[in-house]
Amino acid sequence: MSELIVENLNLSFGGIKAINDVSFTVEAGDIYAIIGPNGAGKSTIFNAISRIYTPDSGSIRYRGQELLERAAHQVVDLGIARTFQNIELFEKATVLENLLVGRSSKIRTNWISEFFFTRNVRKEERVHRRKTEEVLDLLNMQQYRYERVSDLAYGARKNVELARALCAEPEILLLDEPASGLNPEETTDMSFWLKDIKEELGVTIVMVEHDMSLVGRIADRCMALANGAVLAVGSVAEVQSDPHVQAAYLGQVAA
């Protein structure tokens, strides 16, 4: 079944056309990689899906629901969670608190009962903490629980952001360069976790990634973009051998 269907998406910033008539379809259970040189429009696609940017035209449907009819904070309710390329964590809060914010779409208490911290609020808090605990275990990061994010190294932050997205219990994850800035060991860990998330949690993953060896190892399908337009779609090997894709990357090297 197709989960995410993007059709004829167009988006421009002033005069620059960042996305030019992009269409693609992500199947349930796949790891779908989006590759392309810098400025190709990869992150902009994510920002359009999560409604931070509003496209000029086109449609983005998730399980039959039109995302463009929703506000940014209503996207996660459908089961769509994401990470950001330049890490958007709550810096002054602890890792645990960050993960608990990941539970926001599941909150059922209101601020007045929270002010008095009623028994029900406590009960709910316990449930949320148990959920975050599962995620901490999955990603093997118990030791960071009470650390402030601002005290963490870059690699650990990347993991916290992934963990926070998982706390929303998503059915599809949008990961913007999950391995950038990670060292080789961290990248290997990341590739295992992404496989686990796909296989054990049954989560569909769409990821933007420059590391082609990581993409080759885990992606089921791949789309290459350049200058806001789709160059090729297919298996990773197909896309890598596509002459247009090679030209786009060579063009970048030459430039």
């Binding site: 999560s50 809060a93 909150i107 997205a165 929303a168």
Partner: peptide, 30 residues
């Protein structure tokens, strides 16, 4: 009461809005 709020979703939502509005929204906070 404020100490209670700060250990509850509302308090964490406030901190989230303070530290990163983009990710607060993507996690479902209005």
């Amino acid at each position: 009461g404020v100490a209670n709020l700060m250990r509850s979703p509302t308090g964490r939502a406030m901190v989230a809005v303070r530290d990163s509005e983009a990710s607060a929204r993507s996690l479902g906070l209005d």
